[in-house]
Amino acid sequence: MSFVIATSVEEALAALANGASPIAGGTDLVVGARHGKFELPPELVAIDRIEALATIEIGADSMRIGSGVTHATLMADPAIVGSYTAVADAAALVGSPATRNVGTIGGNIMNASPAMDTGAPLVVLGASVELARVGSSRVVPIGDLWSGPGQTTASADELCTAVLVPSRPAASGTAYVRLEYRRAMEIAVVGAAAAVELADDGSISAVAVALSAVAPTIISIEIEPADVERGSVAEAASQQCSPITDLRASDRYRRHCVGVIASRAVDAAARRAAGESIAVPVNRALGIGAA
């Protein structure tokens, strides 16, 4: 086994080209390996000291979130909380303070668990992912990143360097809600992110919903403003998912609950779009999770 600590993106890319695997916070990688899910990769390159990966940059028409930004930063950063509130809702729910201090957004999306919390918010925000390898880089829509549970379309020598999120229109709001049985050290039983835009008369002009933990990857559902008016968000979400049964919940329970959670997410996003301030994470305002 070998372990090197990279201090620049170039150094990390060179290590990946030579067969090393990246480790950021290690909260999936080390925990999974110690648990016996898989072996720790024989060559590791630590990317948590690379300053260029740990920054959030606000551009003219988008925000660039470095892959090494931690959940602790995401949940408290004023620009994220202000413009991409659903991402902050999600980050604030991850694990415990210890998990959030070292766990990163890059690790969360590259680990590709269908229950990951930042994935659904990034889908409704229309985010894309920057993947770099020695000599080249490419940008892919985040929905194209995941190919199955724990699987991505990135190749082994590609490093996720950043997540790019387009700027939000003025009268808009987002929210991420998850069903959890307790308030810490939990993973989503099901989760839903919503983004809502309002027209001048206050009616909903656009809506997007994505779901976690109810399909092999995060899924985006087909939904229109008329569905919100008709009160059929829950039905749409329940119909369009394909959940499994495991020790945390049955497929039927997940299918039902994801509808409830999706309609609460749309409602919270619409309230935020209308200017109401609902603290992060919105789960607490909704009273979800035993105290």
Binding site: F3, I5, I23, G26, T27, V30, V31, R34, H35, L44, A46, D48, A72, G95, S96, P97, A98, T99, N101, V102, M185
Partner: peptide, 27 residues
Amino acid sequence: CDDCECGACMVLLDGQPINSCSYLAAQ
């Protein structure tokens, strides 16, 4: 637990709590 669940192993890294059972010493 040696599984990132219980917090008995909590130490601070640059002042921030981490679960030392599930953190590589070399890191």
